[in-house]
Write a protein that binds this DNA or RNA. Structure first.
Lengths: 148, 148
DNA sequence: CGAAAGTAGTTGCTTGCGCAAGTATCTAGC
DNA sequence: GCTAGATACTTGCGCAAGCAACTACTTTCG
C-alpha cells in the first residue's frame, strides 16, 4: 500500500525478471555449447576467464569467485577440464598451498573455435528475450550499461 | 575492433554482469531461506508463484516454465513440497492428463512467514551488490525498470 | 469408429553441486 | 623454532537436476 511496500514489490519483480532472463539465456547457451563442443556454460566461463586474464593463469579461489561456485565444485570443474587437456595445474612457487590454472594450447584453440558460437547464441537469446514483454526492459537496460 | 565487435563485447560483458549479480543474489537468498525455513530458492519461487496466481493453482507445465526447470525436476519439486504438506495435487477434471497444484493452508502460512525474510534478504543483497563497481549499473537499472 | 500422433506427467539413470571433514601449507605469538 | 590458528585445495557423501524412456490420456484424421 505505502511507498515502502511498493519498493519491496519493485525489487521482487525485478529479481523475478532477472532470474527469468538469466535462466533463459543460460539454457540456450548450455544447449549450444553442449552440441558444438561438449562444454557446459561454467566450463566455457572458466576458459573464457582464463583467456582474459593477464598471463593466462588464475588461482582456484579466483576461479571459484568468477564462476560463483563453491571451492569443491571448482576442484572438480578444473579436474574435468584438465582431464580433457584444456588446462593445466601449476604449483605456486611462492605459496605452495596455491595452485594456478592455465590454458593449454588445445584449450586456447577450443575456446577460439567456440567463442563465435557462444557470442551468436547470446545475441540470439537476447534478441528473443527482447520479444517477451516481461523481459524487454531489462534486455534494453543490459545493452545500455557502461560501454566502458 | 569495428563497431560490430564492440557490440559483441558489450553483450558478453553484460551477460557476465547479469550472471554475477544473479549468482550472488541467489546465494544469499539460498542461505537465508535455508536457515529460516528449510526452503530452497526454487521451492520459495513455487510457493510465491502459486500465491500470486488467480485461484491459487497452476499446472505442472506452468510451474516448470515459472521456475525454468525441466518437467522431471518439477515433478520431484512438487513431490517434496507435497510431502511437507505445503501444497496438494488436484486432478484436472476437464483434461485428465493435467494436474493442478494448489497451496495448502500450512503452505500459505509458511510463505507468509518467510516472505519478509526473503524480501529483506533481497534488499540487502541488492544493496551490497550496489557497492561492487562492476554490478552497480545493473542494480540501478533493475530498480528503474517499469514500476508497472 | 479406431489407429496414429501429440501432450501431461512420472520414473530410472547419470552427472554435477554444496557441505563438512581432511590434508598440506603458511603466519603469529611466545 | 615451535605451536595455534588461518588459508588453499581435495575428498566423501547426499541431494537435486537433466535426459530419455515410459504410462496415461486426448486429439486428429482416414
Amino acid at each position: 500500500m505505502g511507498i515502502k511496500d511498493d519498493a519491496v514489490e519493485v525489487r521482487a519483480q525485478g529479481w523475478r525478471t532477472l532470474a527469468a532472463l538469466h535462466g533463459s539465456i543460460e539454457a540456450e547457451l548450455e544447449k549450444a555449447l553442449q552440441t558444438s563442443s561438449e562444454l557446459s556454460v561454467v566450463e566455457y566461463t572458466v576458459l573464457d576467464a582464463l583467456s582474459r586474464q593477464d598471463g593466462w593463469h588464475m588461482r582456484m579461489q579466483q576461479l571459484a569467485r568468477a564462476t560463483a561456485l563453491s571451492s569443491s565444485a571448482t576442484t572438480r570443474l578444473v579436474n574435468r577440464l584438465e582431464d580433457r587437456g584444456l588446462l593445466t595445474r601449476i604449483l605456486c612457487a611462492d605459496d605452495r598451498r596455491g595452485i594456478y590454472t592455465e590454458l593449454t594450447l588445445p584449450g586456447q584453440k577450443l575456446l577460439e573455435a567456440v567463442k563465435p558460437v557462444h557470442d551468436e547464441t547470446l545475441a540470439a537469446a537476447l534478441a528473443s528475450a527482447e520479444q517477451v514483454p516481461e523481459l524487454e526492459p531489462l534486455v534494453r537496460a543490459l545493452g545500455a550499461l557502461q560501454k566502458v
